[in-house]
Design a protein around this nucleic acid. Structure first.
Lengths: 158, 158
DNA sequence: TCCAATTACTTAGCATGCTAACTATTATAT
DNA sequence: ATATAATAGTTAGCATGCTAAGTAATTGGA
């Protein structure tokens, strides 16, 4: 399909900018769709990841799953706790850790959320073939690896 | 290549999260590499886009090229102006518009910036084939289109 | 011609990512 | 056994995206 000049060559680093933009737009789309539930981007994202992990995971594990740093998560967790969607319980073994659980109410909200998201997801992925999506997913993983190496290189770490 | 379960299926909406993460990491990598130049992510990004457009473009045009909103750009422009990297000149025809130009100093900085970025880019795209990058670029464009439609749909516009 | 709508830009303030620095707990090494 | 390291979480404050609302200039219709 590339007998012509490869499309990405015209983009300089714009591939990267493109990802940021698409990311924002996808999250905006979902956030709009779930607006009636009173959830922001970071809040529904945390809920989905907590669903995919086991309930009872630590904040550390959740932050890792999300690919964000702890302080970013702390803020969102606090909001979800205030909305009584999740609860934090200190781990008996290791008193530093806190384990996260959905409340009854939170589980109900989660169900609704998942239904809506499944729908939005179909729209977002429309006209993209399975192979295309697969290539993108793999490419992103590779780029993530590259970027981390790059960062290590430039920050002069061991 | 997908006789097994397609990789992206395991990701739920994580493809979207992945993009956000890779976007942040790529920008971090470049920002680290250009650290000696005293530029933040938003500032070097604006410089690169201004380079690709014609100098003398309006803020409107630049914001569109960047895919960000005007207020986000205004802040960055102001910083670049304070660093004497670019200047804003009121358009003679339409006094509402301001046209953007690199200063002498800004042009020199731009050259250095471009050299460094070309290098980082190579590292970021390492081990990705041209076809892969192409597929990703096209996929992103399609997803951006989908997301915008989605947003229009859910915001109940005309 | 002149008032209303539109456009380019700005300002103010929010959302969500980050790093740096703090506390409390646990693990390690002498 | 105890002092030092590391780890989980928090707090404070920055960077950069956004929307809403304001100003000044332009356009367009009565």
């Amino acid at each position: 399909m590339s007998s012509t000049i490869p499309f990405h060559e015209t983009l300089d680093l714009t591939l990267c900018g493109s990802m940021g933009r698409v990311h924002r737009l996808c999250r905006d789309a979902v956030t709009l769709a779930v607006e009636p539930l009173g959830l922001t981007q970071s809040r529904w994202t945390v809920m989905i990841h907590l669903f995919h992990l086991n309930q009872g995971c630590t904040q550390q594990e959740l932050a890792h799953s999300l690919g964000i740093e702890m302080p970013s998560l702390t803020r969102t967790i606090k909001q979800l706790e205030q909305q009584q969607i999740i609860v934090r319980e200190a781990d008996a073994e290791d008193k530093r850790s806190k384990r996260l659980y959905f409340t009854e109410q939170g589980l109900n909200l989660l169900e609704t959320l998942r239904v809506i998201i499944a729908d939005v997801k179909q729209n977002l992925y429309a006209d993209l073939t399975t192979n295309q999506l697969d290539t993108m997913a793999h490419g992103l993983v590779q780029m993530e690896k590259n970027a981390r190496q790059c960062i290590n290189h430039y920050s002069g770490d061991k």
